[in-house]
Design a protein around this nucleic acid. Structure first.
Length: 421
DNA sequence: TCTGGGGTCCTAGGACCC
DNA sequence: TCTGGGGTCCTAGGACCC
């Protein structure tokens, strides 16, 4: 178990990615939208200052956006994923103890570091900024939860210049942090805690162990211990394969026909299968979720249908075949549909598939070679270079992404042009 | 009119077994 | 009328994260 952790957090990550290729956006209000251009999921500091909230539907702040000339982007995950990988590569150059926690965050273990931690963190910050182009904040503390809290201070308080070590001043610092901002405390728990008179992170660190276990379960007790400086959540460096892989998107417009739903289901199944193969897995269970367009502002009706797959597989055509069968079971003509999703579960490593006497294994060597070749081509020339005909060509159901920037770093066709005079 | 898309873990309770 | 005790497995629901 490490005795000291750092959390590296990219500031306003998606906005920072957009700014790399459009430097004129520096110091201007910028927001990035969720899939389907619905909500605001990233904001520059200038946009935050205007009062634009995280997760806010864009139609609610149209006036604000027009009045202050806020720059608006659709989300561009090819770009963000690639920039993220570059940031993580830089971090890996500083220590082998890296846990990639999310697209824009990583925990580092500091035990092998002999230098002054703050100095070391400042150098990381400078290097990421210079080599990749995104600003980061770094928090240091004796547990992951405290490192998280420290990173928050590093980001919010300009006096620290993006780097903060909470180790010697944890109690005082925690007193300034609301309990709702503690890592592991969500909306529900913060309401419960506030009602019980526990309002700051320090209050939470002072609660009785038995009380914490009773009201917040074992995970909450761990959070409490971590706030006291006892590390309970270790650095997870080993790659852990997903137990379930989900792919679903809202449609760009209402969808009524089974044909279009089938296309979308095929597209999402094929994406999920790609992820499945990337982790070397085969799925033994598949589920299709179909969501209606909410009627009169009511609760949207959801239809779910799933099945066990006779012999676990990662072969896209077979998975699409099942997805279509499941979809047909729950589809009714009439209602407008908003979204379809495909989940692959009961995932086993491909080498350990339990064969079945009555269902000959569908994925021969030839089929898997085909899948691998397609995956390689798509990785090299850009996603969707080769796709399954069942996923359609026109794809009128596809999500809205009206303001997407180019895939500057992952597509040969979209490399930025530089003109020199 | 317009509100994202993934994931994980924990607990309680029921079914079933000896 | 009385009605054990202990274990496993599975599922649904609820909490959290980004």
């Amino acid at each position: 178990m490490h005795r000291l952790f750092a959390l590296v957090d990219c500031n306003n990550f998606y906005v920072s990615c957009e700014r790399i290729f459009s430097p004129s956006l520096e110091n201007k209000p910028v927001v990035v939208l969720s899939n389907n251009d619905g909500c605001i999921i990233a904001r520059s500091n200038e946009a935050k200052a205007l009062g634009i909230k995280m997760g806010q539907p864009i139609f609610q702040c149209k006036d604000l956006i027009a009045r202050h000339r806020v720059h608006v982007f659709s989300s561009n995950y090819s770009l963000y994923g690639d920039i993220s990988r570059r940031v993580m590569d830089v971090l890996a150059g500083f220590t082998p103890d890296v846990e990639v926690y999310s697209i824009d965050e990583a925990f580092l273990g500091l035990d092998g570091i002999v230098r002054d931690p703050l100095d070391w963190a400042r150098e990381i910050r400078r290097t990421v900024r210079k080599w990749v182009g995104v600003p980061v904040s770094i928090g240091i503390g004796p547990s992951k939860t405290l490192a998280k809290a420290a990173a928050r201070v590093a980001k919010k308080d300009p006096r620290h210049d993006g780097v903060f070590d909470i180790t010697s001043c944890a109690r005082d610092t925690l007193a300034e942090i609301g309990v709702e901002d503690v890592w592991g405390i969500g909306r529900r728990y913060s309401r419960l805690l506030t009602r019980a008179g526990i309002c700051s992170a320090r209050d939470l660190s002072d609660v009785d162990d038995a009380w914490a276990k009773k009201h917040l379960t074992i995970t909450g007790l761990r959070t409490v211990m971590e706030l006291r400086g006892t590390s309970c959540i270790s650095l997870e460096q080993v790659f852990s394969p997903k137990k379930a892989i989900m792919c679903s998107r809202s449609f760009g417009r209402k969808v009524y026909s089974l044909e279009e739903l089938n296309e979308a289901a095929a597209a999402y199944t094929s994406r999920a299968a790609e992820k499945l193969r990337a982790q070397g897995g085969a799925a033994g269970f598949i589920e299709v979720v179909l969501i209606e367009f909410p009627f009169n502002g009511g609760f949207p009706k959801t239809h779910i249908s799933g099945m066990n797959i006779p012999v676990a597989t990662a072969y896209t055509p077979e998975l699409i075949h099942y997805a279509h069968a499941l979809l047909e079971k729950i589809y009714r003509s009439g209602p407008a549909y908003r979204k379809v999703g495909v989940m692959l579960a009961s995932i086993v490593p491909r080498g350990q598939v339990q064969t079945n006497l009555f269902f000959p294994c569908p994925e021969g060597e030839k089929e898997m070679r085909l899948m691998e070749t397609i995956d390689r081509i798509n990785a090299r020339f850009g996603a969707g270079t080769i796709s399954h005909a069942a996923a359609g060509f026109e794809r009128p159901w596809q999500m809205r992404q009206a303001r997407k920037s180019a895939r500057f770093t992952t597509s040969w066709e979209e490399i930025p042009l530089v003109r020199a005079r």
